[in-house]
Design a protein around this nucleic acid. Structure first.
Lengths: 233, 233
DNA sequence: AAGCGGTAGTGGTCCGACCACTCTGCTGGC
DNA sequence: GCCAGCAGAGTGGTCGGACCACTACCGCTT
């Protein structure tokens, strides 16, 4: 029998696996409060320093949430919580991988938009329109970008798949778009973007999934192609 | 002027942002070695403990790699490195979100298989066939699962989009599949799985993207539907 | 009963020490 | 001259303790 653990990897990694296992097995429920760092460290037989590293790591992964002065809690483990780190990928990617990311986004966004066309209700449609008009009413690039993001976010939410929406959120992270679109929009692509957004909106109003899919794919594909040529030059 | 940093968030978070920024700005190249923990802590004006938490967090995210006794290095920042954490999402998801994950996988896998049908070469096709025959030649569930994973992994690789392949890898993580497929395969779905894999293979041989897309979508969709009914019961 | 202040307890930070491992360069024998 | 082996310095990994910043709760005052 092994009284002591099998000594695989660092103690911090073992602690992370232990906590993850407790959650996976249902011994820790979403929202539940964990024992204190000091108690946890004592239970697993390691120092508070190492335990803190494990907790910090799980915090950035969106599994745990630490509240200063209160305690450590399991997050709701919703798609948004766990997929927040997806944005890091987008932020640190350069060159060819940006095209790959846009390709993934084109596939998911077109499908999400098609689903949204079939399912979207009046309330959500009103929200989409709000951002569409606000986007067309200003010339401030920052504001345009914000409404552009919200426009697609509303559509993704209307698709009814939170996981997909969270992934798309990461693929459209603010810094990512700012980096890619800066050059794109400078080439006078504002008008084209407006036309494409209008086409997507029309398809949503008509509840026409195929038209929505095509419009969204073309919308992302335009940027994708532009970026491809930029890199090839 | 601010001689000291603007004091936003914890010092550990600031350290993480600092290192990420250094990589994003190109001051740190993939594969490059970082200063020692002690030096980094001194440079950013914080303790080694806090710096270690930041490093550990970035290590978990796949951005850094710590080699005991040698130093800390920036990873190659490839899709596989950064998207490894995607598996955590799959491992900790339950109930309705499993269906959502399968839906995302169906969309990406069908597209990846379609791309593979158009692009796959003789060598990769041989690899796919190897796993297909090996999968049909045994009754050991563990071995079947391993070849099943490799089968789809080869196809994803042949699609030519490393980012998409890395995401699919996370969505097909061993524990995820083991959890879902255990029940599915127990209902005598082995034969159906074999037929579906054969259909995918035929489409690849024929270099028929649309047939490949349909076959892959049906393949994942079968499991998706089964899981949906399981949850509804 | 409501407001308020104090206090115990929590996570956040820092320090210093030691351990385990890697790499390098020197030493010794062949 | 060359190579195996050893020893040292340097690195990340772990530990224990101390103190700070903040939160929550309890009891006191009004």
């Amino acid at each position: 029998m092994d009284e002591t653990a099998p000594q695989k990897g660092t103690v911090t990694q073992r602690a992370m696996e232990h906590i993850k296992a407790m959650i996976a097995e249902g011994r820790l429920e979403p929202g539940q409060r964990l024992p204190t760092e000091r108690d946890l460290a004592a239970q697993l037989g390691l120092s508070r320093s190492s335990m803190r590293e494990a907790i910090r790591a799980l915090t950035v992964l969106g599994v745990l949430e630490a509240r200063h002065g209160s305690g450590i809690y399991v997050t709701q483990l919703e798609a948004g919580d766990l997929l927040e780190t997806f944005g890091v990928v987008a932020d640190l990617s350069r060159g060819p991988r940006l095209v790959e990311l846009l390709e993934v986004r084109r596939i998911l966004e077109s499908t999400a938009t098609a689903l949204a066309a079939a399912r979207i209700g009046a309330d959500q449609l009103a929200e989409v329109e709000k951002h569409l008009t606000a986007m067309n009413a200003t010339d401030d690039p920052e504001e345009i970008l914000a409404h552009d993001l919200a426009f697609h976010r509303e559509i993704a939410a209307a698709a009814g798949n939170d996981t997909m929406a969270a992934i798309l959120e990461g693929l459209s992270s603010r810094t990512f778009r700012a980096r890619v679109w800066r050059g794109y929009e400078e080439e006078g692509a504002f008008d084209r973007t407006r036309r494409e957004h209008a086409a997507i909106h029309r398809a949503l109003v008509a509840h026409d999934p195929e038209a929505a899919r095509a419009a969204a794919a073309a919308h992302v594909g335009e940027v994708e192609e532009w970026l491809r040529t930029q890199l090839g030059a």
